Amino acid sequence: MLRIAVQSKGRLYEDTMALLAEADIKITPSKRTLLVQADNFPLEVLYLRDDDIPQSVASGVADIGVVGENEFIEKQEDADIISRLGFSKCRLSLAIPKHIDYQGLQWFDGKKVATSYPNILRKFMNDNHIHANIHVITGSVEISPGIGLADAIFDIVSSGSTLVHNNLREVEVVLKSEALLIGNKQMSQENKGILDEVLFRFEAVRSAQDKKYVMMNAPRARVQDIINVLPGIKSPTIIPLADPNWCSIHTVLDEKRFWEIIGKLKELEAQGILVTPIEKMIL
């Protein structure tokens, strides 16, 4: 049985549970149970605080865990990074009161900085030869300058709305973070086999993200021109139609270039363009 440590609440919890569901690993949520077994897969979920996950994986309490890169780097636990999951993205930044005329990192010399990430901040300051007074605080870091507890803060930033609400502005991005899948270095061979299947499913889900399956009818005389503008994974599928002068073309498009390419297809006389989302994609 493979055990995965997951944050017990918050955005990382929601994104992780959504990924497991899309990988067809069915977990019945329970507010009272910290350890829940999947209904249809040899995996159990251990719900923990986010800052406890690196240690639980490093010590073998859990085989794998989903944790923010910021927490993993801060805790400095001895575990492997198995995969970058691409969700729950944020950044660790330095922020100061918005009225201050900021001229550069030297401003922080001798200043008191409140943070829940002292190890990351200390390394950054040392690397840049800045002598700041690091004040460790848990929770509500952003209010520190407003109540006179610190001159600045070092904290997680997503949209930046919390900073604005507290009359702060972001001045330096120190670390960009996303969800990581980490693993115990001494994982059993049996659980490594289960993990391989989990990774296979995760990759199938991630490969389908931001992709669209596109079908269209086109004059046979324009097929090669249409193929030339399609950046599909491989050669598109060409299907003959009842009318010998027409055929159906099927391909996969990246959503980022979708409208650009659709416009070109219309210029090349493609008709009846049908677009559907992709749930999974096996490469």
Rank of each mutant, 00 (worst) to 15 (best):
I182M: 05
I273G: 10
I73P: 03
K256A: 08
K212A: 04
T28N: 14
F41E: 02
S235M: 14
D243G: 09
N70V: 05
I261D: 04
V252P: 13
E44H: 08
N167I: 00
V57C: 07
G232S: 15
P42Y: 07
E69Q: 09
E197Q: 13
I156F: 09
P240V: 02
T33V: 13
L168C: 05
L43E: 04
L163K: 10
P29C: 13
I147C: 02
V136L: 12
A221T: 10
F200R: 15
V198Q: 12
I147L: 05
R169A: 09
A114L: 01
V223H: 11
K192F: 00
N128L: 01
A242S: 13
W107T: 03
S30Q: 13
D51Y: 13
N40D: 11
A58G: 04
T162L: 06
I64N: 05
A114F: 02
L43H: 06
L163P: 12
L195F: 09
K234M: 07
V67T: 03
A150M: 04
Q7W: 04
R11T: 04
E190K: 15
V275I: 14
E74C: 09
G104A: 12
D243V: 10
I137V: 15
S159C: 10
A218N: 03
E260L: 15
D109Q: 15
I227E: 06
H131T: 10
A21H: 10
I64K: 06
D196M: 14
V6W: 00
I25W: 08
E74M: 11
A38V: 06
A23T: 01
E69I: 02
I100L: 15
V173F: 08
I227H: 08
H129F: 08
L94A: 03
H129W: 05
I226L: 14
G60E: 00
S188A: 14
I100T: 14
I120D: 01
V113Y: 07
A79E: 00
L175D: 00
E77V: 13
K185M: 03
R11V: 02
I73D: 00
L199W: 08
G160W: 08
T251P: 11
K75H: 09
I82L: 12
D24E: 14
K98G: 02
N167W: 01
F124M: 00
P97F: 04
L195W: 09
M125C: 06
I134T: 04
P277C: 09
I64E: 03
T237A: 15
G104H: 11
T276Y: 13
E172W: 11
L175H: 07
D63A: 07
R220I: 10
F87Y: 03
L12S: 01
S235H: 09
Q55W: 13
V205Q: 05
R84S: 08
P97D: 00
Q186C: 06
L230D: 00
L46H: 05
E172R: 15
S158K: 12
K111A: 07
F108Q: 01
E22H: 09
K264S: 00
